[in-house]
């Protein structure tokens, strides 16, 4: 039982990080109808910027600095490279984001090299014991911050006018325009929000004992099965999908280790993704009208 709780907690912590990343994907998809494959690189860049800033300033400032820089980068990419493609076929936009992803990845390699670096989590290697369950402080911080951030995002969408305007833009650009909403600014806002979530996820993806390395960008792509499972256009689905993937990976690495030569838990998120595609192509929480990508 202790082990189950232990694994479950780690799975939830990891799943929430995936959820933050998946949420970014979904917000961009809803806000600007772009499936942004370069999102993983925003996560990586966020982690590297925190790494660079940390020795020079307090943690909170380093985090804010990384958010500012990554959001700025996302806005530049959206405005210069994506905005002009709006209205073009989905394939064109997806290919463009793949190209941007490769570009950013190589930029990261050029600036920071191929090696791994230190961890950049907000807390160190310490742990907290609850009964017989050992909770790493890094995982506790992950859960606490993710829950707060997710609640803030929910509040933003449900209760603020900019959140409403973003939902309106996602629902119907024409009707949103008629309300005086600058749809272009909403595209930008959705990318900015996604980039903020990417940086938040990055500090936990590189929390002790995980480290900052170029592979973080690829690691973030596990959010793709998460959003397909949850539904491409569902904010709730992104978080649930992330949790499903995180729990599958961590619980599976223990309870499924005797099956498939110990590799089943590695492919299980993708198997679940295919199953969902077959049974509910719009995902567990998605809306039926979702276009095929």
């Amino acid at each position: 039982m202790t082990l189950f709780l232990q694994l479950g907690f780690q799975g939830i912590a990891l799943g929430l990080v995936y959820g933050l990343i998946a949420l970014g994907f979904v917000i961009m998809f809803k806000g600007s109808h772009t499936f942004n494959f370069a999102h993983g690189q925003f996560v990586a860049i966020g982690a590297y910027v925190v790494l660079v800033l940390l020795p020079r300033m307090p943690y909170v400032l380093a985090f804010i600095g990384a958010v500012a820089i990554t959001v700025g980068l996302a806005l530049v990419v959206e405005r210069l490279l994506i905005r002009g493609l709006i209205g073009r076929s989905v394939t064109v936009v997806v290919l463009a984001t793949l190209g941007i992803s490769t570009m950013l990845h190589n930029a990261v390699l050029m600036v920071w090299g191929v090696g791994s670096h230190d961890s950049v989590g907000p807390v160190g290697a310490g742990t907290t014991k609850v009964g017989s369950v050992v909770l790493p402080n890094s995982a506790l911080a992950t859960v606490a911050v993710s829950v707060v951030v997710l609640a803030a995002v929910a509040w933003f969408f449900q209760r603020t006018r900019h959140g409403l305007a973003l939902r309106a833009t996602a629902s119907s650009q024409e009707a949103a325009l008629a309300q005086g909403i600058d749809v272009g600014r909403m595209f930008a806002l959705s990318w900015a929000l996604a980039a903020f979530l990417a940086v938040t996820a990055s500090i936990f993806l590189a929390s002790f004992p995980r480290v900052v390395s170029p592979s973080i960008g690829d690691l973030a792509l596990i959010a793709i099965p998460a959003i397909v499972i949850g539904g491409m256009d569902s904010l709730m689905g992104a978080v649930v999908g992330g949790l499903v993937v995180g729990l599958t990976q961590v619980l599976g690495s223990n309870y499924l280790s005797d099956i498939g030569g110990g590799r089943l838990h590695e492919v299980l998120p993708y198997v679940l993704m295919l199953l969902v595609l077959l049974v509910r192509p719009y995902g567990l929480f998605g809306s039926r009208s979702i276009e095929r990508v």
Partner: peptide, 13 residues
């Protein structure tokens, strides 16, 4: 309906 008030409001995101 609140959304329609968007353009009359000033506070940022």
């Amino acid at each position: 309906l609140l959304l329609a008030r968007h353009q009359h409001l000033r506070s940022g995101p």
